[in-house]
Design a protein around this nucleic acid. Structure first.
Lengths: 207, 207
DNA sequence: AAGTGTGAACTTTTTCACAGCT
DNA sequence: AGCTGTGAAAAAGTTCACACTT
């Protein structure tokens, strides 16, 4: 199986399943049926089983799923069995928050360097992570394997986008207000802002 | 027209269109074709026109769209022509960041109160916003119109979820690691975490 | 008996293509 | 001539329902 590649919606749900499984594991649940897990994930059981079929044959007929092993398979499938190196673009309050956040490290996402365009920020250190001038990006990218670039500034975010893309960063989390898109399918951009998330809610409330 | 209600994917794209229009407006662009706007939004022009048709007939045949008036229509449709009152659950670094963020206010999202369960945080004030004990939630909800509850704590986020739902908060932005779902279709929950966003990228990179 | 995995049926979403307005 | 708005066609995603395994 696994001929077709995973649709975006399925991918998003797989991530939800993983998160919910991690929470269940902490409550010492060992086995679960697609019916019960689906309920906790806001989907129906057929959807959940179909989604999981993109990952493999992970359950036991008549029994259900081992939480430990399903979690393991999902982490593997989602690229979360390994660690990833991140760089930050933009010393904003949000950027500083991310550098100091320990929970991302626990999940295998490590900020190794930060970049800014403002002279006064260069050389600062947050949680052991140094802030470099954007000019120094190419040196850093050559010295360490950079997997993901996180853009956390409202002022000229496209400067960081362009620099990251130019230096071969393949995955970008854009947290600025304005979403970006590139034609190059070698590059993946995730756009998120609190404003966009809240707008989904304001639409719902307006009804 | 406007018989069917807007699909989730369309809604998400409409929000993107709005954000991109706001950026274009700043660059003093006045008119744009569906082709050009679509390009900036990472979709094709048929998709864009179909999406906009859920909002209304907003363009001029042979000409394109007025950015000012399209933006106006979208803001209206998305519930962003009005202001919304927010409360925060959880005095975490992320929570404090949100209370202090001025850009949300500029977009019409106002935090009016924050709640925490830890004694030492009660009574603190961030950016003019007071932190109350969660016990006081019902008083606050009775005194002011609360539109959106934002949960920003990793420790027992469900305590805030339950309290918010019980007090009739209809829209919730859950920023904790574990996504929540409720059966009640009167209530809308948006789940977001940096970990989930980064996992989408790790999946892409793993390929 | 219970619950997975999956083709087939159904539903929704996307893309095409063009009539119709400016 | 140019570009929107939209039915109709095509594609994709979801749900059903049941054969099959434990």
């Amino acid at each position: 199986m696994k001929i077709k590649n995973t649709p975006e919606n399925t991918l998003e749900r797989l991530i939800i399943y993983l998160k919910v499984l991690e929470a269940l594991e902490k409550k010492n649940v060992n086995f679960i049926s697609s019916e019960d897990l689906a309920k906790s994930c806001g989907v129906n059981s057929a959807q959940l089983r179909k989604d999981l079929s993109f990952v493999g044959s992970l359950g036991t007929k008549g029994v259900g799923y081992s939480i430990k092993s399903l979690k393991y398979s999902l982490k593997n499938f989602l690229g979360r069995a390994q660690e990833w190196n991140l760089i930050l673009g933009g010393i904003s309050p949000l950027g500083i928050f991310l550098l100091q956040d320990k929970t991302l490290q626990k999940e295998g996402f490590y900020f190794l360097a930060a970049f800014d365009t403002k002279e006064e920020n260069i050389g600062k250190i947050y949680n052991g992570i140094s802030v470099y001038s954007l000019d120094q990006l190419s040196y850093v990218v050559n010295a360490i394997k950079v997997d993901i670039g996180v853009i956390a500034t409202e002022e000229e975010p496209e400067i960081f986008l362009n620099a990251f893309v130019e230096q071969g960063v393949k995955a970008i989390l854009n947290l600025s207000k304005v979403p970006f898109f590139v034609k190059n399918s070698e590059i993946k951009i995730e756009n998120f802002s609190f404003s966009m998330a809240l707008t989904k809610l304001s639409y719902f409330l307006k009804e």
